[in-house]
Write a protein that binds this DNA or RNA. Structure first.
Length: 766
DNA sequence: GTTTCTTTTGTTTTT
DNA sequence: CAAAAGAAAC
């Protein structure tokens, strides 16, 4: 046996690395070294001669994980390993679909629609079907259609399955909308995210010759994070392995999957734990290896995580252990407000950087929803803590970037209706709603796409001469860009789009302060294009668009470099697979985490708990749990009781602290918020909170909900001095309105006179 | 057709 | 409170 790759591994890990057999399931507990096992297994396959690099297909959850895995294997066995396929499901399928596009009925320039594009397309479908967008939001319909695709259900079958449902359910309407949606998608020569997998499955099912070709190539399939695969991905794996329906006479490939049912956090997107629980039934002669020793966390952290996950009933018990010492106690902090929570985190990080000599890159702050980063960011800026937010309003989802990319997509694919419609009047060029309607009518009459109809305007008689001229100008512009794209790389095209379309000029001319940063973003996209051109000398426009479409949140996580670095802020979902010496788990309140919308159904609540488990197990040495009693989600601030997940952590593991040493200003603000927050929403339960321990207490039931929140009565008069969180000190110069709508005009000196709606404004009377 | 004002709505989580 | 959508004025 080749012992090079098992040195320093425990017996289970070593067995997982060297096991020979048709199917292997590695049940890997959190922090059990699964990434190492997977990379060493690949290295072992290569070094022992069982596999050649091009015979390996390894599926990871993110592109970043893929490039790291490839790098490690190359370091272990040499550069020839480069010809392995290591990528996400989506990237692997795209590679196949591009190659075999004829067989799936696409032209080579097909577009990829992300979630936002799908919703836009669904908006058109909903309009065609006369659906009320308030009753059935395009977003919900698009998501439901996506779930059909995850289950490999086609439009006709979806209609059949949902016709019995009441006509006015999302279920039924989505079934009806699926067909028209898919028709529009295909007419646009585009695929959405779910199609990438679905069409790959269909390709293999309907073209046995192609299936056999890939099966003969890939002799070893490895899938990481198997607990988060959906049905379509499961069927695809079976096709790869040779256990699918299509093709005959091909020997099956070996299959290795790695996963942990306790870390399944994507059921909302179609992931099915069944895939991991029933692996043995699915793949005969399957062997199972459990990795139950944790090498990541201290015993304290692990005990907390084990205690929390034990509350899930739909679960096979697991015995995850460590021989690391107890380590530091967990620190809990019950803050008054989200600002107070942020202040605590910032102070604690500053202290850790000083006293414990921690680098910022050793610290991560995690939260349930992206919007929660805001208060923390504001505080970090003030405290001068270097940080990055991963995900959030993602770069590629910003309006200006989507606009620019829509130009590129329209240039690459004339039939891409979502892209063409997005830019037809951006920047303004005199093609308004009426003109768009006319073009639409022409497109329908001629049975062509919106983009193609731009050239056939004679058929749209109702259009004004001016609009017609504007459209002609637009068509000429696109043709110019197409000519340029024909013999230049994507970088040159992005440059041209920014300049020749007048997009940058419009931003520069605007007096909206936000447009300054939009210009920067556009320039950054230009830089991204240049970088792509340098890294891929023969990279194409479609290649660039594909790369951009498939970037994931987790791909942007900064590397943990030795010197300094930055604190990472991210959602718990993005944190999957990562680890940090110091982790802050924030917003542990009923309604925030678990999220209010997941608290109704037991299944969703258990998924929230798995998410908590993922969060807890990211920490190696120090773990902080924090919550805010008052959080201003939107509108009025609200009280939130402590999260049940906090209570599920054994009390002796946690050192609870409460806000102390608030300065006068902050205390006044906390009081003010409390005064207002007493309007109890009622949807988050009826338990009170023991302020000393931060735990739920049935005896302390909050005040009953008043019909309307009491207006703030600051007792302000003209001439009073006030303090504002942002503007600082000021003097009241006028008062308008009363009660709920009371407004004060306050002179903040250099900052000028501001009109403040007292219901919201963060002001304190001094 | 475009700008500006007013009203409404919204926060899960993401390949 | 902010962003987006809708309505009215230009």
């Amino acid at each position: 046996m080749d012992t090079r790759f098992v040195e320093g591994l425990n017996p289970q890990q070593a067995e997982a690395v060297t096991h020979e057999g048709p199917a292997l399931l590695i049940i890997a507990g959190a922090g059990s070294g699964k990434t190492r096992v997977l990379t060493h297994r690949i290295a072992h396959l290569l070094a022992s001669g069982r596999a050649r690099p091009h015979e390996i297909l390894a599926i990871t959850f993110t592109n970043k994980a893929a490039s790291e895995m490839r790098g490690r294997v190359e370091a272990l066995v040499g550069p020839e390993a480069r010809s392995m396929w290591v990528s996400t499901f989506h990237a692997a399928c795209m590679r196949i679909l591009r190659r075999e596009h004829d067989a799936v009925g696409l032209t080579s320039t097909f577009s990829i629609y992300d979630t936002a594009d799908s919703v836009n397309l669904m908006r058109l479908v909903a309009k065609d079907l006369n659906l009320d967008p308030k009753q059935f939001s395009p977003k919900a319909l698009a998501a439901r259609v996506g779930r059909f695709k995850d289950e490999l259900i086609g439009p006709e079958e979806a209609v059949r399955l949902t016709e019995s449902a009441s006509r006015f359910t999302l279920e039924h309407v989505a079934g009806q909308a699926y067909g028209p949606y898919q028709a529009r998608l295909e007419a646009a020569n585009a695929v959405d995210f779910d199609d990438i997998i679905l069409k790959s499955v269909r390709l293999f099912e309907e073209h046995p010759d192609i299936a056999v070709k890939y099966r003969e190539q890939f002799r070893h399939i490895l899938v990481d994070e198997y607990q988060d695969t959906n049905h379509a991905q499961y069927v695809l794996v079976r096709e790869f392995v040779g256990m699918g329906g299509a093709g005959t006479g091909t020997a099956t490939a070996s299959l290795t999957v790695v996963g942990d049912a306790d870390q399944s956090i994507y059921a909302f997107r179609g992931a099915n734990i069944r895939n991991i629980l029933e692996f043995e039934q699915d793949f005969p002669d399957a062997h199972i290896i459990r990795l139950e020793q944790n090498y990541r966390s201290t015993q304290t952290i692990l005990s907390a995580a084990n205690a929390v996950i034990a509350n899930n009933t739909e679960r096979r018990p697991k015995n995850l252990w460590t021989d690391a010492g107890a380590g530091e106690r967990i620190v809990g902090y019950a803050a008054d407000t989200e600002q107070d929570e942020a202040r605590f985190i910032a102070e604690e990080i500053t202290r850790l950087m000083g006293e414990d000599n921690r680098a910022p890159s050793e610290v991560a702050v995690m939260y349930r929803a992206n919007a929660q980063s805001r208060a923390i960011e504001e505080r970090f800026i003030r405290a001068e803590i270097p940080y990055t937010v991963v995900g959030g309003t993602r770069f590629y989802e910003r309006t200006e970037i989507k606009d620019m990319l829509a130009y590129l997509a329209a240039v690459a694919n004339e039939n891409d209706d979502v892209a063409v419609r997005r830019i037809v009047n951006t920047p303004r060029r005199g093609i308004g709603d009426a003109a768009v309607e006319g073009i639409e009518a022409a497109a329908r009459a001629a049975g062509v796409s919106f983009g193609a109809a731009l050239r056939r305007l004679d058929e749209a008689s109702r259009m004004t001469a001016r609009a017609r001229a504007a459209v002609e100008g637009f068509v000429a512009l696109l043709d110019d860009l197409r000519a340029l794209a024909a013999d230049n790389g994507p970088a040159a095209l992005i440059d041209a789009v920014a300049d020749r379309t007048g997009y940058l000029a419009a931003l520069r001319a605007s007096d909206d302060p936000q447009d300054a940063s939009r210009i920067e973003n556009v320039m950054e996209l230009v830089a991204v294009g240049r970088e792509y051109g340098e890294e891929n000398p023969d990279g194409t426009l479609t290649g660039f668009l594909e790369k951009v479409a498939l970037v994931a949140d987790a791909d942007q996580v900064p590397d943990a470099d030795g010197g300094g670095g930055v604190v990472t802020l991210m959602t718990l979902h993005t944190a999957k697979g990562l680890e940090y010496p110091v982790v802050f788990l924030t917003g542990l309140e009923e309604g925030t985490f678990p999220h209010a919308r997941s608290m109704e159904t037991p299944g969703e609540l258990e998924e929230e708990r798995r998410l908590a488990y993922v969060g807890l197990t990211r920490a190696k040495e120090r773990l902080y749990l924090s919550r805010a009693e008052v959080r201003s989600s939107w509108g009025a601030p609200q009280y939130f009781p402590a999260s049940r997940f906090v209570e599920e952590v054994p009390g002796d593991l946690v050192d609870w602290r409460r806000s102390e040493g608030l300065d006068e200003l902050e205390r006044a603000r906390a009081e003010r918020l409390s005064r207002r927050g007493e309007s109890w929403s009622g949807i988050y339960g009826t338990k009170g909170v023991d302020r000393a321990t931060g735990t739920l207490d049935d005896r302390r039931v909050p005040p009953s909900p008043p019909g309307s929140a009491p207006g703030p009565d600051l007792g302000l008069g003209i001439g009073d001095r006030v303090s504002h969180d942002q503007y600082g000190l000021g003097r009241v110069v006028a008062l308008e309105g009363s009660g709920h709508n009371a407004v004060a005009k306050v002179d903040f000196g250099d900052l000028g006179v501001k009109r403040l709606l007292l219901r919201f404004a963060p002001v304190v009377k001094l």
